[in-house]
């Protein structure tokens, strides 16, 4: 029971990371400019640097994009 619960939680974590990864690809090319105009003036390497954080915080970022 405990083992199955843990495995389910780990799968959810894995799905979260996967969605974050896919969203991150969209974010660094397009999404970032929608929520912060300063990013448009910045080098692409800055957006690459933001990629890990995007994977971690994609729910916040998606909410921000929809609000804009």
């Amino acid at each position: 029971m405990l083992k199955s619960t843990l495995i389910i939680l780990i799968v959810i974590f894995g799905v979260y990371v996967l969605i974050g990864f896919l969203f991150g690809l969209y974010f660094i090319f397009k999404g970032a400019k929608q929520i912060d105009p300063l990013i448009a003036e910045s080098k692409f390497s800055v957006r690459l640097l933001l990629f890990p954080g995007t994977i971690a915080t994609w729910p916040f970022l998606i909410t921000k994009i929809f609000k804009k």
Binding site: D36, V46, L50, G53
Partner: peptide, 16 residues
């Protein structure tokens, strides 16, 4: 620690 390192850039300060 990963979450902290990944969000340490000024962009995250401004947008989170």
């Amino acid at each position: 620690l990963f979450l902290m390192a990944a969000t340490s850039h000024d962009f995250w300060l401004a947008n989170l």
